[in-house]
């Protein structure tokens, strides 16, 4: 027990760095996810192709190898990154690619009737996306975004391999210094778990608030899935008549 108490301040410092990488990666991933998702639903074939290439490349490449590449390979051709920056960029690119698919899917899930209503009100495509489609799509993005955020948190552990003294790295150091594997790793595990719980709680709150703003029953709580098609937004588009 005393081992844990001794190591705790250092582990806490590691945890803070873990949180920084998670936050940085999440911001970058969110921006990339929206860019990729919007480009992926654009009318322009070129934009869609760019989005496709980004998503498939970074979804299909290992975050760890990507991090090595930014940290060890790029300096060889003259681009030097801080280790933390390399970690944030690698993780952001990787998670952003998954997020891009989430955004694209959420946009495509909005019923055509909503698009038609915006055309009948003469909205421009940009206005339609900003004021009508994205605010509704946001609700169905949040649950998968929550998953990705947790994945991102856990993936920051690989940053230990490029000498960043984040939580896992500090844990390894303390284990080596003390030889007390069980208490140290148990503490580390617990720390990841607690942070993940806090993130999940925050995402749930956000989901509930968003569902409510769309007039959907707060069904997310009891394990029931919130209805994707809202109550008031109508279904089909009328057909031939």
């Amino acid at each position: 027990m005393s081992v844990v108490l001794q190591s705790f301040p250092l582990l806490l410092q590691g945890l803070i760095l873990t949180l920084e990488i998670t936050a940085g990666g999440a911001v970058l991933a969110l921006v990339l996810a929206f860019l990729a998702g919007l480009a992926g639903t654009a009318r322009s074939r070129i934009l869609r192709a760019v989005s496709r290439v980004y998503v498939e490349f970074f979804r299909g490449s290992s975050a760890l190898v990507l991090m090595f590449w930014f940290f060890f390979a790029l300096p060889l051709i003259g681009f030097r990154f801080e280790a933390v920056a390399a970690a944030i960029i690698a993780l952001g690119l990787n998670v952003g690619a998954y997020g891009g698919e989430v955004v694209r899917g959420a946009i495509l899930s909005i019923p055509p009737a909503q698009y038609e209503a915006t055309i009948a009100l003469n909205m421009s495509p940009a206005l339609r996306m900003r004021r009508v489609i994205l605010p509704q799509a946001w609700a169905s993005m949040l649950p998968p975004f929550g998953n990705l955020l947790i994945e991102l948190l856990k993936a920051t552990a690989v940053a230990a391999l490029i000498t960043i003294n984040e939580l896992t790295f500090v844990g390894q150091q303390q284990r080596a210094a003390t030889g007390e594997s069980l208490p140290i790793y148990t503490t580390v595990l617990f720390m990841y778990f607690v942070v993940a719980q806090v993130l999940i709680f925050g995402m749930r709150r956000l989901e509930l608030r968003t569902a409510r703003s769309l007039g959907r029953a707060p069904a997310a709580r009891r394990g029931r899935r919130p209805a994707l098609a809202g109550v008031g937004d109508g279904g089909g588009s009328g057909g031939v008549g």
Binding site: A117, A120, V132, S213, G230, G232, D233
Partner: peptide, 20 residues
């Protein structure tokens, strides 16, 4: 299209209000 649409409005069978 945006020019000519200005003068036309439509009400749909399924209302299509914006739920947000």
């Amino acid at each position: 299209l945006r020019q000519v649409r200005q003068t036309i409005g439509m009400v749909f069978q399924q209302f299509n209000l914006f739920p947000n």
